[in-house]
């Protein structure tokens, strides 16, 4: 049982770290804000979920598990809102936005 917890937790945390790495790489590989936000918004939320699930395997008792669940809920609620704000500011302030992407009836 102890070994199963160790192995499962390690696998989840490593997967989460791998996705965090991909997200960081993606931020540098795309050239425009709105394309970069895609990577930041999606990969970070899944990676945070995987790391927290991995940590749940190491937790003793129900208390830390509920706390980790709350962390996941807060990250999943705040991450899309933050990227949404970045997008909104960029679209409203960039005067040459049509150079970067096709815009439909704005």
């Amino acid at each position: 049982m102890e070994q199963f917890r160790l192995i499962a937790g390690t696998i989840f945390i490593l997967l989460g770290l791998f996705i965090f790495g991909i997200a960081t790489l993606g931020l540098f590989r795309f050239h425009y804000v709105l394309n970069r936000v895609h990577v930041a918004a999606k990969c970070d939320s899944l990676a945070a979920l995987l790391v927290c699930v991995g940590l749940m395997f190491f937790a003793n008792g129900i208390g830390p598990i509920i706390k980790l669940l709350l962390i996941i809920v807060i990250v999943w609620l705040s991450n899309p809102v933050a990227s949404h704000l970045v997008c909104k500011i960029e679209v409203e302030t960039n005067e040459n936005i049509t150079d970067e992407c096709e815009v439909e009836e704005v």
Binding site: V39, L46, C101
Partner: peptide
Amino acid sequence: VFKANIHMIMLVLSPNPNERIKPRII
């Protein structure tokens, strides 16, 4: 979210991601 991440990972790891996308606002 899992589907989105697999899509995103494929895109990021492809040789030239900036040519494979066609961004637009809808």
